[in-house]
């Protein structure tokens, strides 16, 4: 099936906006982290897409291939994925601690409690 030329980029935009919206609009901290993930993944897709060359193969030395995909963005995204995983893990760990301390993971309820403390 022939994919329209900019399909990937459109998906990047959709994912990006969906992720960002979730981060901003959701009060549930876990959902916020999920939104953050979606947002980051859209960037991964962006990088991977830009490395792809139509008709190119995997960049393996030998075999006389002239046309191959750019491997660098893929490598970069491996790093970025690691960073993303670390962020998610840290975020979730924080949520566990917040739950222990406040008994809730809803942002507005936490804010209410904090207001009483100052």
């Amino acid at each position: 099936m022939e994919v329209p030329g900019l399909f990937n980029y459109w998906m990047v935009v959709v994912l990006m906006m969906a992720g960002l919206y979730t981060v901003i609009a959701r009060g549930n901290l876990v959902k916020k982290i999920v939104g953050l993930n979606v947002f980051q993944i859209s960037v991964f897709v962006l990088y991977i897409t830009m490395g792809k060359i139509t008709g190119g193969t995997a960049p393996i030395l030998g075999g006389g291939l002239a046309l191959y995909s750019n491997p660098l963005p893929h490598v970069l995204i491996l790093t970025a994925i690691v960073v993303g995983v670390a962020t998610t893990a840290l975020g979730l760990a924080l949520i566990v601690r917040i739950r222990e301390a406040y008994g809730t993971i809803e942002e507005d309820e936490i804010l209410d409690m904090e207001r009483g403390e100052t």
Binding site: V23, L29, K32, L36, T87, L90, G91, L94, I95, R97, I98, A101, Y102, I110, E114
Partner: peptide, 9 residues
Amino acid sequence: LTAAMRYLV
């Protein structure tokens, strides 16, 4: 904790 969370996001 919440400050860290906000900062993280």
